[in-house]
């Protein structure tokens, strides 16, 4: 049985906020199954007593002093905005009336 159905692809695409065409859904299902099938290799290894590595350099939380420093000016932060008004990013309506 395939690991990923068309329905799974639709669910994951929704989580990723990615709209897919019907052809893309089919292609993704096919390729994800092939790739995830290859990942099964990892199950050959017993890892029950192994700690996970999320980061190779041992580091605790890295803090800096809580002092305000200069940041990017508002007009530079807005220079790449697809849509803006005054000092704000403008987006489509969020809540339906």
């Amino acid at each position: 049985m395939p690991k990923v159905s068309k329905k799974d692809v639709e669910y994951v695409a929704k989580l990723a906020r990615l709209r897919l065409s019907e052809t893309e859904k089919k292609a993704h299902a096919e390729q994800l199954n092939k790739i995830l099938g290859y990942m099964d290799k990892l199950n050959q290894l017993d890892t029950s007593n192994i700690k996970p590595t999320s980061h190779v350099v041992e580091m605790q939380n890295v803090f800096r002093e809580d002092v305000a420093k200069p940041s990017i000016p508002v007009d530079s932060a807005l220079q790449n905005a697809p849509d803006k008004k005054d000092n704000f990013f403008r987006v489509p309506k969020v809540i339906d009336a």
Partner: peptide, 18 residues
């Protein structure tokens, strides 16, 4: 995301999200 990303990027986003 549909229009801005190419196929390989979408594939990795799908794989990672899954």
């Amino acid at each position: 995301k549909k229009e801005g990303f190419g196929m390989e990027v979408k594939r990795r986003i799908m794989l990672g999200t899954h």
